[in-house]
Amino acid sequence: MDGTEVAWDDESKFDDARKHAVKVWTAGTLRQVRIVQDGATSYADVEWRDADSTSGQWRDVYGKWAARHGTDHLLLNRAYLDTGKRYGKDEHRRRVAAHELGHALGFCHKAYGYGMHPSLLWAAYDHIAGKRLDGPTENDIKAYHALWG
């Protein structure tokens, strides 16, 4: 991240999910961090990529934020998110992408408050999907402003 700008590069087949994630994390009062496409004269802070595995570290993992020196990776797992797979619909891909972009913005998993304090950053995807959370909740927005102003 360069100050308050996140430049992204895209090597994922899930463009709709990426667009949704950027939209929900820059909507309303969430304007302190600019999320822009990487250009010829800039360096990508995050790169959207696809994974395709159900074994090892990817068992029941639909997406992942991987911090790296230089460019972080936001990975979407085709093994679960491709059409015809367990979560192979736009609504799930969008939720997973928005959740992972939340990590890139500096937010960790929230393992508390299931039901009482909704968060797009809940650790358990089933809770996010069960509440149909498609973007930052009121709690996430408060955390965003606490971190970014």
Rank of each mutant, 00 (worst) to 15 (best):
D2H: 15
T4R: 15
E5M: 09
V6S: 01
A7C: 07
W8S: 07
D9K: 08
D9R: 07
D9Q: 13
D10Y: 05
F14G: 09
R18L: 07
R18D: 04
K19N: 15
H20W: 12
V22F: 03
V24I: 12
W25R: 02
T26M: 09
A27S: 15
I35H: 01
V36M: 00
Q37A: 14
Q37H: 04
S42N: 10
A44K: 09
D45A: 10
V46R: 04
E47K: 15
A51W: 02
D52I: 08
S55R: 13
S55T: 15
Q57T: 14
W58C: 04
Y62R: 12
G63K: 03
G63D: 08
W65C: 07
L74N: 12
L76C: 06
R78M: 01
T83Y: 05
T83N: 14
R86G: 00
Y87L: 12
Y87E: 00
K89N: 10
E91I: 11
E91S: 12
R93W: 04
R93V: 00
R95A: 10
R95S: 05
V96M: 04
A97N: 09
A97W: 06
A98M: 08
H99I: 06
H99N: 09
E100L: 05
L101D: 08
L101K: 04
G102P: 03
H109F: 03
A111S: 13
Y112D: 11
M116Q: 14
L121A: 11
A124Y: 11
D126C: 07
H127S: 10
I128G: 07
A129F: 14
R132M: 08
L133S: 03
D134R: 00
G135H: 10
N139M: 03
D140V: 03
K142C: 07
K142N: 12
Y144R: 08
H145Y: 04
